[in-house]
Design a protein around this nucleic acid. Structure first.
Lengths: 102, 102
DNA sequence: TAAGTATATTAGAAAATACTAATATACTTA
DNA sequence: TAAGTATATTAGTATTTTCTAATATACTTA
């Protein structure tokens, strides 16, 4: 795999609503799978598959603790990326609403 | 579309080798389609489709000049994102090679 | 106005991704 | 050791994305 392919894999791994949700949950805490599944209506199997995609892309790391698997964001620059993506989207929305004064 | 869906669309639009190549070419210059096609083996049709994906996601803007369409990166934060993605990948590679001393 | 150049669109097939349901593995505690 | 809890894997189907080839549109220049 060359650099471009690795970059594509990182971007692809982030480009899914469930995985975005995972990253956001992990942005402040280190969590196990059952905690990640808790509030939402994900099946455990599907969550596990998404976590593997993030792990394979090098976005998260896992550590075993008893019978739980603790996930955590590996490189904090991922959070910076997410922040920038959010800003890009928000700036775009603001521009779309440009005609309005509040 | 909510914020998360918009974020996913931005990330998806970046997550493809041809589109990454387009962004890199546009990072320094404002270019027309024929210039973007020039050095590589893309078909014009395929290039056009990828450009539309980037335009729909709000990544690039287009302006007509004569019979050429000039493309340009709309929000420079996209370039910051690409830089961070590159750093994440490179840091990961360095870590993988960690055992070696040069 | 005809021919050439630049770009976009469409349709259909091929490839990749995502989801569900069932099953497997591994640890923990009664 | 049996039962319960936490997580992973597999297989199959459904959905989405990507590519190619053909065609359409729009501008330019002879």
């Amino acid at each position: 795999m060359n650099i471009t392919e690795l970059e594509v894999r990182v971007l692809k791994s982030l480009a899914h609503p469930i995985r975005l949700n995972i990253i956001k949950q992990l942005s402040s805490d280190r969590l196990c799978v059952c905690e990640l599944c808790a509030d939402d209506d994900f099946t455990q199997s599907n969550m596990s598959q998404h976590l593997r995609i993030l792990k394979d892309a090098g976005i998260v790391t896992v550590e075993k603790e008893g019978n739980k698997m603790m996930y955590e964001v590996k490189n904090k620059k991922i959070l910076d990326i997410m922040k920038l993506v959010d800003e890009v989207v928000v700036e775009d929305l603001k521009e779309t609403l440009g005609g309005f004064t509040l």
